[in-house]
């Protein structure tokens, strides 16, 4: 067949395809017409054939480039991200995230150990020997903390907080969520960054709390921290688990190639980090608006306990199915790594 006749024969289709693409690429999936979609996918397939024909016969770089562009644009138009609704986001938070965490619970417990053991040791040190605690956390900082929770300051802060609460909540969002995300991201250095972050955070928090207990401000401190601590501490540990998961994917790919392993573990890790971020947002709101309220400490302890139970129930039971704990065999979302792996295996 002749190149020129080929072009003459096909150009109408190409031009039609271009027009369709221009129209459909900009519009949302919901507004696509059925016949347009049929036409577009038919044209796309035939243009794929055109491209391979031109490639195999070497009918010129420009023609090939032109068709290559058409195919690339068509590909981007047809194989786009499946639309995500608010509904799917809510479903992820209510079911997907706790399910995922239960599937990766080993990492959670390792991260918990890395955080809690230094925390307890430092707290013990702080209670028994405040001078030694100064080796862990700078003396001025300890003094600041003590000032914040000493009785007079505490009541003053309460009245002051009435107008400062939003500022504080904003600060907690910026600071705490930032720490969690960093804790996850540093896992990319084979998990080392995460391990270091967890241990250091555990040490510094532990030393501060121990020092406060030693100075006799235990009641103020624990009544303040118990409510938001439920979400905050758990979320930090989850972010740590995400970082460890990322590092583990690099160190130990198992049956997968290292690239695939990174992809699978990375996706799970970022999902955990997203959930952790969400929990920290809640924690920031509680810490900003509820924790410093000038109400009897008993109420705070009660609410705090309820929050701990809530977090526990949420993470343990939410989205539980008949075969919980096993990896979901066929992922509906065929763009997800798991679904992709399955498809690749089938192909």
């Amino acid at each position: 067949m002749n190149r020129e006749r080929f072009i003459k024969r096909r150009r109408e289709d190409w031009q039609q395809f271009e027009k369709l693409l221009d129209r459909m690429y900009g519009s949302r999936l919901g507004k696509w017409q059925g016949q347009d979609v049929t036409r577009l996918s038919n044209l796309y397939r035939s243009i794929c054939y055109d491209l391979s024909l031109v490639q195999s016969r070497e009918w010129g770089a420009r023609l090939e480039q032109y068709l290559n562009d058409l195919v690339a644009r068509g590909h981007n138009c047809l194989y786009r991200t499946p639309p995500r609704s608010l509904d799917s986001a809510l479903k992820f938070l209510s079911e997907g995230f706790p399910q995922l965490l239960r599937r990766r619970k080993t990492f959670f417990f390792v991260a918990l150990a890395l955080f809690a053991i230094p925390f307890l040791i430092a707290m013990f040190v702080g209670i028994v020997d405040p001078v030694l605690a100064e080796q862990l956390v700078d003396r001025t900082e300890l003094e600041d903390v003590r000032q914040n929770f000493s009785k007079t300051m505490y009541t003053e802060i309460d009245s002051e907080y009435a107008e400062q609460r939003s500022a504080a909540a904003g600060f907690y969002v910026w600071n705490n969520v930032g720490i969690a995300f960093r804790c996850f991201a540093l896992g990319v250095f084979f998990g080392l960054g995460t391990v270091v972050t967890l241990i250091f955070n555990g040490l510094s928090l532990g030393a501060r709390s121990g020092y406060l207990v030693n100075q006799g401000h235990a009641d103020y401190f624990f009544s303040f921290a118990v409510t938001h601590g439920s979400f905050e501490l758990t979320a930090i540990v989850i972010a740590g688990a995400a970082g460890l998961l990322l590092g583990w994917g690099m160190i130990h790919p198992g049956d997968l190639t290292r690239r695939e392993s990174l992809r699978v573990h990375g996706m799970d890790a970022v999902k955990l980090a997203t959930g952790a971020g969400f929990m920290l947002l809640i924690a920031a709101l509680i810490e900003g608006y509820f924790s410093p309220l000038p109400i009897p400490n008993v109420i705070k302890y009660v609410v705090g306990t309820m929050m701990w139970i809530l977090v526990f129930v949420y993470l343990t039971y939410s989205g539980r199915t008949a075969h919980d704990g096993f990896p979901v065999a066929v992922d509906r979302d065929h763009h997800s790594p798991a679904g992709q792996l399955i498809r690749e295996e089938l192909a």
Binding site: Y79, L186, M267, V270
Partner: peptide
Amino acid sequence: TPIGWFEAFGRNLLLVP
């Protein structure tokens, strides 16, 4: 193929390292 939400989020978090 185009990227999804989690990939977009994840690769931007990893701007830190």
